[in-house]
Each structure stands twice: as C-alpha cells, then as structure tokens.
Design a protein around this nucleic acid. Structure first.
Lengths: 217, 217
DNA sequence: AAAGATTGACACTTTTTTTACCAAAAGATA
DNA sequence: TATCTTTTGGTAAAAAAAGTGTCAATCTTT
C-alpha cells in the first residue's frame, strides 16, 4: 500500500510525535496546528507536515490536526495498536529490569515469559512473569504466538540463541548483547548497545570544548 | 586542535571499530589492512580509512594498521583511556541492572554510588555500590569528581534531578527517562529511550512486508 | 634496488534530510 | 452568503550529510 520508502529520520521521529500528542491529550487539547506543535517540539512546522504526509493526510486545512485522531493514527503506523507478545531471553538484572517495566504493557507489548539456562533462576517470577528453562522455548513460542525476543544475555551466547528463537518463529530481536547479529533479511533487529551509548557519551564529554571555538564566525 | 566537524555517522561507528579491534587483539592479530578489516566489518575500506583519518594518520603505507596501537588510539578518541566517575540516580530495577554490569568498569566507567528518594532503598548496596539519599548529592558529586549521572527515574522527576546534578557540577547525563531534557548547551545528554526503541521495532515488524516488493526492479 | 602493498588526502557522487512555497480546502467572521 | 483567514498537502528546491573512487606518496618486502 505504501510505495515510497520512508526515511530513517522520519521513523525515528514518530515515537516523539506520539509522546507529545499523548501529553496534549492528557491536557485535554482537542486540536493543534503544525505551527503550534512545531513550537512545542522545536522542529519546523514543515517537517511535521511532511513527516505525517508520508503516511497520509491526517489534518484538515484551516483546522489543523485533531489530537486524539492523530494519536491513534500514529499508533497504527507504529503498529502499537495491536498486541505484541514478547519473551525475554536472559533473566539476569537487565532482563528483570525490563520485565518490571510496566509501561511496555500499556503500549501493547505483553511480556509472556522469561528464559534462562541457569537452573537457579528457573521457576522464579518477576511481577508475575515466570522464568522457564530454555528447553521449553520452542513449545512456548509456538503456543504463545511470540513475535519479539529481547536478548539480555552475554554476547557469547547471543547469536546462537537468536538463531534458535528465530527458527521457532520469532520475527524480531530486541538485542541488548554487544554483538552484530547478522541474521536473515526478513528478521527485524533493533539494537540497544548500552556500552556504545556510553562510549558516545564519553566522546561527547571529551570533545565538548572542541566545538566551542566554532561558534564565533 | 581538531578543526573540522566530525560527522555523527563517524562517531557512531567508532565504538564498533573499537570492538572489532579488541577482538582482533584477543586473537593475537598484530596488524591489519583497511581492506581486510572492511571484509570482516562489512563496510568499505575507503570508509574505514576516511573515518580514521578524521582523527589522524594511524596507519602506515605498505603495512596497514597496527592493531594494539589503533585500539589504544581509538580509546583516546572516545575518551575511554581516562577514568570517568558515574552516579546512578534512581536505584530501581534499571539502576540496579546498570550497577551490576561490570563491563562498564573495565572501560573506565566507575560507578561511585546510587541515589534514591525512597528511604527503603537507601543503605542498600549493589555489588558493593551503596545507595545514598538525594540530600547527599551535592557533597558526593563534589567529593568524588562525578562527571556523569545516569538518570534511571520516572520522567516526572527527571528534569528536576538533571538540573540539580548539573548545578552540582555533573557534565553529562545518561538519560533513560522518556522525556526531552532540554538543558544548557554545555551539558552533554545521551538518551537511551527504551520505549522508543521498542516502538521502532514494532514499526519495523509491522511494515516488514512493505519493502519486499521493492527488491525486484 | 625494484616490486608490491597500502595509506592519506582529495574530489566527486550519491543519498538523505530539511526547508520553502503555494494552490486548494476548510473554518471563521460579519 | 460572501469574504477573509488559517492551515494543510504536495511538490520542488536547497542544503547537508554520507559514502566512494582514485592516485601520488611512502613504506615493506624481497
């Protein structure tokens, strides 16, 4: 249905639009113009309109955008109008932290279970979410229609586990392991590399002063 | 010293170069050409050379790059050759998960303490890292030369706490709260927005099939 | 000393991203 | 109802960013 390629920058901005619209809704705002939104979000109005127009015309001339309507349309674009079933591979600290974060479920991301090779962790529950042994992965994925697997395990085991869950039917990997999983093209991978993030932070801190001299033109 | 602006894409690739070089070192590889590295990393040799040349000439004609030397030079560029002192604001699950992750310390990121408003968490220790009350923030930051604060608290309090720690001398915020902290320009902010990451993942899963029709030309 | 390898620098190309513009459509006003 | 104002949607243009190719210079190896 959508023919033209959506640019990466646009996709990155969508969740932010969604967040701002959610806040507007909370404040009871019914309608908003691209101009007003642009001031709040500190982007140009033109960019907002063009971003949204990639997916269709959600506004109306002379009126602007209806906030609840646009909010729900962006949810559809992001695919968070439907439920997604998730499992967490690796029930260590990070896995548990994610399991504990209830906001994901509000957006339709249902954490169905956690898995670990460590027998000591198996049987434990976090916020009602149980830890299963990896032997039960295949059955669990198929029975619970699991689409997404969060990988919160050391990098040594990450690739193996990714390939395993994909062979069982998982469509997407939310990868917290610091490794390049090169997987088949039809598998979605979203990386969260905390150590890289921290290195970029370090880079910025280290080179902070470099740019100051650039401002005077 | 460095005059030309380094592009964002280059900075994003630096940690990956660093990771690959680290693995080469582990394997005892002494030298590598941009060509060989390009094959392993699946980028062009030209890109590797140009990326590195933004920061100086680390290679040698006819020889290539000395792996340990290049590794240590990239560490310098990233600023991870020096120690960085970190505090974690918010001793909940995510804060604890980060505190437990020992790899950061191997790269020189020393987690000096955690802080929380919840009196029940104060006094607790995670891997030897103590949780302090927020009242002690100012003193602690000044005494421990804290440069970086990781914000792992709900977004309602995030901005306030960010401003507070900055006023006490923190230079950089590693922001896990789902909010735009617009802070002074001389403060470094690195965002880790897990919910946005998950939404992008959802987008990709939802629109996975859209692109398949594009491949046949 | 000659041959081979490989970088560093530059210029060029391509891609991506952003901004500007304006006709058309709807709302607001009187 | 007619007119004025607002604001979108779509297109085109501009700007910025990112990536690639080339080759002289220089080092290694034989």
């Amino acid at each position: 249905m959508e023919q033209k390629e959506i640019s990466r920058a646009v996709i990155k901005r969508l969740p932010r639009y969604y967040r701002y619209l959610g806040e507007l809704m909370k404040d009871g705002v019914e309608r908003i113009s691209s101009n007003e939104l642009s001031e709040r979000m500190k982007v140009t109005a033109s960019q907002i309109r063009q971003d949204l127009n990639n997916f269709g015309g959600f506004g109306q001339q002379g009126y602007g955008y209806n906030v609840p309507y646009l909010y729900s349309e962006i949810a559809k674009i992001l695919g968070i109008d439907k439920q997604h079933n998730i499992i967490i591979i690796g029930a260590g600290n990070l896995g548990q932290a994610i399991a504990n974060y209830t906001n994901f479920e509000r957006r339709g991301f249902m954490i169905k279970g956690m898995f670990d090779i460590n027998p000591r962790l198996v049987g434990m529950t976090v916020r009602g979410i149980e830890v299963y042994p990896v032997e039960q992965l295949e059955e669990f994925i198929k029975e619970n229609d699991v689409q997404i697997a969060a990988l919160t395990i050391p990098k040594t085991k990450a690739k193996e586990m990714a390939e395993k869950v994909i062979s069982y039917g998982v469509k997407a990997i939310w990868n917290f392991a610091h490794i390049d999983l090169d997987l088949p093209e039809d598998v979605v991978v979203e990386n969260v590399h905390l150590s890289e993030s921290l290195m970029r932070l370090s880079y910025k801190v280290t080179h902070m002063d470099d740019n100051i001299k650039e401002i005077p033109r």
